[in-house]
Amino acid sequence: CSPQFRNHGYVPPESAVSALTYGVDTRETVSATLGRPTTTGLLGDSTFYYVQSRFRTVAYQAPEEIERQVLAVSFAPNGTLGNIERFDLADGRVVQLSGRTTAEIFADRTFINQLLGNVGRFDAGNLLGDDE
């Protein structure tokens, strides 16, 4: 059975990245040439991160990330281009997500209310008793 592939995110092509010059380009010019970053650093938008990943799904298994490119564009304090680093899937770590969640205030409406609140569909199937 043939696996199915899906791409997410966007990393600019090599041609665009090599057009940047250190110490000159600012956040605006980098954003113009490379496009909007997928996400930015936590403190103020210090570092630009471009992330692109490719997922493969085989039959009943969960989609698996088989390829990831991360381009980190960091800036010097004076706002000009500081450093460009590249990471890939190997740099990441498989993290077991915590199952705990912060309690929610407005919980579900009563079970019965939900169950019967949505009744109203009447279709010919009931009337005619579909014979196999």
Binding site: G41, L42, L43, T47, Y49, V51, R68, V70, A72, F87, A90, D91, G92, R93, V94, V95, L97, S98, T101, T102
Partner: peptide, 21 residues
């Protein structure tokens, strides 16, 4: 919890500096 999830996501992406922050 949001901060903790950020740590989870950054560690998964391998962006350890952001995870430390």
């Amino acid at each position: 919890e949001a901060l903790y999830r950020l740590v989870e996501a950054y560690v998964a992406l391998g962006l350890n500096a952001e995870a430390q922050t």
